[in-house]
Write a protein that binds this DNA or RNA. Structure first.
Lengths: 147, 147
DNA sequence: CGCAGATACTTGATCAACTCAAGTATCTGC
DNA sequence: GCAGATACTTGAGTTGATCAAGTATCTGCG
């Protein structure tokens, strides 16, 4: 068995290594920015998933965070303790508690969105042409993910 | 103020959104695979940073994990309890304890490397041409990171 | 040489996140 | 109207993370 079969190192594997490196670096930077706001990554992620216009049932949030409902209870506790969100019992189904952003919550969420939307340093440093190329390739990649 | 200035949504920002989505998806998949080996992400990451050929001082590992030394103590404790690594006091400087992989550790590390080197599903699904393009752009991005 | 200060690791306290199992309240359908 | 499902909470237990304090060892200066 000399040649053929999948090469041990495909372009995709090389890309993965770089992807991971950029991701870890970025996670560190984002974490530090969020810490300045007194937020953990999970709290920020949750905050960002809340729509300022519409309450979100805790079970829906759990689904979007890919975690247990009991986990959301804790995260909501801490966000609520800081006055960023409120639990509101659903009118139609009193088992359901939906989270709504307070005014402070809306404001802080805005800052979180900015921080988390900021491209990784490595990507920001690319030429605009490269950025466009990257965006287009990733767009095709994500489409594969959804189908 | 009509035009110019940085657009609210640059190609880099769009790329970041996609990047994040792929990264989160991949993190979930990798986490699940590692859980089957009974490893957490941190443990696997540490294991992967150990060279089967050469002991690594705990302080060096802390540096590479970007975390506190006391954190490494705990991770090493758990890896050692599973017989994957051993603490070996350095001959030259007895303050230093270097971690060495046991035979089991080397074997498990091999599996970890395979899992963590596997490209995200979204990227693996790209055409080879796109994979190459992605790799090349990311390579340029990472170079910016290092300089 | 000998001691002061630096360095490497450990320990203990505290907290966030996460999981699982069990509990409470409420709803839904037979 | 009652049995079972659903939404959330609570409590126990683990991991990871940070900080402060402690122990052992080394290094360099006087």
């Amino acid at each position: 068995m000399a040649t053929t079969t999948t090469p041990r190192v495909s372009p995709a594997h090389e890309a993965q290594k770089l992807f991971f490196e950029i991701g870890m670096d970025h996670r560190g930077r984002v974490g530090a920015s969020l810490a300045e706001l007194g937020l953990t990554f999970s709290q920020a992620h949750a905050l960002r998933l809340l729509d300022p216009e519409r309450p979100l049932p805790m079970s829906s949030l759990a689904e979007r965070l890919f975690c247990d409902a009991s986990n959301v209870t804790g995260i909501a506790d801490r966000l609520e303790a800081r006055g960023l969100v409120e639990r509101r019992s659903s009118a139609g189904d009193r088992r359901v508690k939906a989270l709504t952003l307070t005014d402070d919550g809306v404001a802080l969420r805005g800052r979180v969105v900015v921080i988390m939307s900021e491209p990784p340093a490595a990507i920001a440093a690319l030429s605009v042409a490269d950025q466009r190329t990257l965006r287009d390739v990733l767009k095709r990649a994500v489409e594969h993910l959804r189908s």
